[in-house]
């Protein structure tokens, strides 16, 4: 059953008098608990559709329906609330907050998502999620002392700690070597399956495709 629907979404970028249509009417349904991998050549529009779906930029036309509600008609504040409580993000770089420890990164996300857990429960939840990504032994470490793979594990933990319904992952393994990439993808797959999180992932790496339930190819701003 589709929890997320992208319906005839268009995106045109304007640069002075020149306008370029990046998305030419994309249709895509994302089913609950499913991992969908978006692949395609550079410039095909896959990152653009991911950021529009995640509410990080607006579409020029079409509808983006999350649980039946059209996000293109929502205010910035409504979209922010959805991003903080219902969505999780993993980016190409980990984008951790440099002055927070691993534990604090996750506690921050629980605060932002306005979960109803008290401080003690929050700490327990953080330890549980850090265990899932194999990082509980580094809970007091700052990002500067973590390796690339460790940072990305923490980023994944931050993305799912508030139990979002959707996970958006933009090239989550691009900055990692092959071994670490597979570890990270296994973690994403295990977690999303355990927690029934619907995932939309953009990747260039064909080795990551076996971890997806569905592969969607984009070309010239359209689903191929």
């Amino acid at each position: 059953m589709a929890i997320f629907t992208i319906d005839d979404v268009e995106k045109t970028f304007k640069n002075g008098d020149v306008s370029e249509k990046i998305l030419k009417g994309v249709d895509l349904d994302l089913n609950e608990g499913e991992i969908t991998a978006l692949v395609g050549p550079s410039g095909s529009g896959k990152s653009t559709i991911l950021t529009i779906a995640a509410g990080l930029q607006k579409a020029t036309g079409g509808q983006v329906l999350f649980e039946g509600k059209d996000m293109t008609q929502m205010s910035q504040e409504e979209i922010r609330k959805i991003r903080s409580s219902e969505f999780g993000f993993v980016f190409q770089s980990s984008h951790l907050v440099p002055f927070l420890t691993v534990e604090d990164q996750l506690l921050l996300m629980l605060d932002v998502a306005e979960t109803k857990l008290n401080k003690k429960q929050q700490k327990q939840e953080v330890l549980k999620v850090l265990d899932l990504v194999g990082m509980s032994h580094r809970k007091d470490a700052y990002p500067s002392s973590l390796s690339g793979g460790e940072k990305q594990r923490v980023a994944i933990a931050r993305a799912i700690i508030h139990q979002p319904k959707m996970l958006f992952a933009d090239e989550p393994t691009a900055s990692l070597d092959s071994k670490r990439s597979k570890e990270v993808m296994e973690i994403i797959r295990n977690l999303t399956k355990t927690l029934q999180i619907t995932t939309l992932m953009v990747t260039h790496d064909e080795e990551m495709l076996p971890y997806a339930d569905r592969i969607v190819t984009m070309k010239d701003g359209l689903i191929d």
Binding site: A54, L56, H95, V97
Partner: peptide
């Protein structure tokens, strides 16, 4: 600026 952007992306007001 990068940090603020990411914090905004994850929903910080």
């Amino acid at each position: 600026i990068g940090l603020y952007g990411i914090l905004k992306a994850i929903g910080v007001k």
